[in-house]
Design a protein around this nucleic acid. Structure first.
Lengths: 228, 228
DNA sequence: TGTTCCGCATGATCCAAATCATATGCGCCG
DNA sequence: CGGCGCATATGATTTGGATCATGCGGAACA
């Protein structure tokens, strides 16, 4: 809950700070690049849009699965609660991300979906999507490939979290997050968020980046990091 | 099966290597329960079997993807190497597990597959499987569901690794790994491996389990742990 | 223009997990 | 039989990341 209030503050900030590319594209009436762009029109027509306040729930653990989501604006988290009310963030989805896609093959949601900022999501209702996947081979193929990529990316994330040393963890993350040139990373969002993704306290990330720079292993400029 | 395992383990003592239920079933000419049992015969016919020595590689990072695997015996790991030769275990597959399934939609393997014990795997060659998934809706559905489950289970794993406290991490793992009765866990393999999965040093796991037992939160007997 | 909030940054301290060391019991094998 | 390897276990010590505290600078806003 402490976390939530922080994120809420994040959101206030987000709306007033310079917008990302996706935001910009959106405001220019392009579509948000999304993971489901290949879905044919007759199914897209069945989708709805929903706007959420920061902190509002999209679904709760145990709810009947009614659909999966593409985030059009804002950020939405998967949160699981334990018996003592403590909560744990499983995943944070940002713009263009597919959300709760694995629930498509489950009768119920296995965690809560909660907006951390004011957010807009596109809802792909379950049965039209399932029926599409059941008749359209190409669509099914795409969806499988998407799930497979998800699996690999989750494995990579696991790999990073298994690294003890902060500096090694950061370096590994950087080399994975590097752009096509292999050594330039554009930091989207705040370092705080990056620290969260890496399972590190923000202070540790700041320090580690500073250390790496004095060691000459990286170079930093604004929101760019260069590996060497 | 869980209930029977104790008896079986006792018998197994007489054999040279510890066997699991699946081994036993296999030796009784049942099939190994596997994630791909629903694959129709004409595709199963295209599969091959391969036996690996402990330490032998099934594939290397960068190799052309030639198929995916079901472990019939032994354990196989996905391992990724960094630039300094340090290696990291991404995943350990045990009997009946599907292995490298995500690679089906990738041109190359993204990590090494290495047997940690002597192992037998069934190889499902890539193209027959892909073509099956491209024409058989039911098969595609099953495979998608399987990938979706994988995604959820990986998320759960991530969730566990994000827990700082060793005791909370262990408790969460136990409550997730609990059998259908909700509070009995059968420890397959060694505690050392379990520690590895949990991202803990083995000593810490031993200590934590001992602590939890003295606190009366769990009970232990041989290879069973009971939550309370 | 001052106030506030927040991201970024760094110093000081604490603590829990890693690590090192050591012991025991068991199965395997020469 | 005796020695070796390994899982299990526990004590002692170290260490690195978490946490607390504080400061700086920029952006939003009144």
């Amino acid at each position: 809950m402490v976390l939530l209030s922080n994120k809420f503050n994040d959101c206030i900030r987000l709306r007033t700070t310079p917008l990302t590319n996706n935001h910009l594209l959106d405001s220019l009436h392009y579509c948000v690049m999304s993971a489901l762009d290949w879905i044919p029109n007759e199914v897209t027509a069945a989708t709805r849009r929903r706007t959420l306040q920061a902190g509002e729930s999209l679904f709760h653990q145990g709810d009947q699965t009614y659909g999966i989501f593409v985030i059009e604006k804002g950020r939405v988290q998967m949160i699981r609660h334990d018996s003592h009310g403590r909560s744990l963030v499983l995943f944070t989805a940002a713009e263009g991300d597919l959300f709760a896609e694995a629930a498509l093959f489950s009768e119920t949601y296995h965690c809560d979906g909660v907006a951390v900022t004011e957010a807009t999501v596109r809802i792909y209702p379950r049965s039209p999507l399932l029926s599409l996947l059941g008749r359209d081979h190409a669509a099914a193929q795409k969806f499988m490939a998407l799930l497979a990529r998800e699996v690999m990316s989750l494995r990579t994330h696991l790999e990073i979290l298994n690294i003890r040393s902060a500096s090694e963890r950061v370096l590994r993350h950087l080399s994975i997050a590097a752009g096509p040139d292999g050594h330039t990373i554009e930091v989207s969002g705040t370092l705080k968020e990056m620290a969260n993704e890496l399972g590190l306290a923000q202070e540790v990330l700041y320090r580690t980046l500073a250390d790496l720079e004095t060691q000459g292993l990286i170079e930093r400029a604004d929101h760019l990091i260069k590996l060497k």
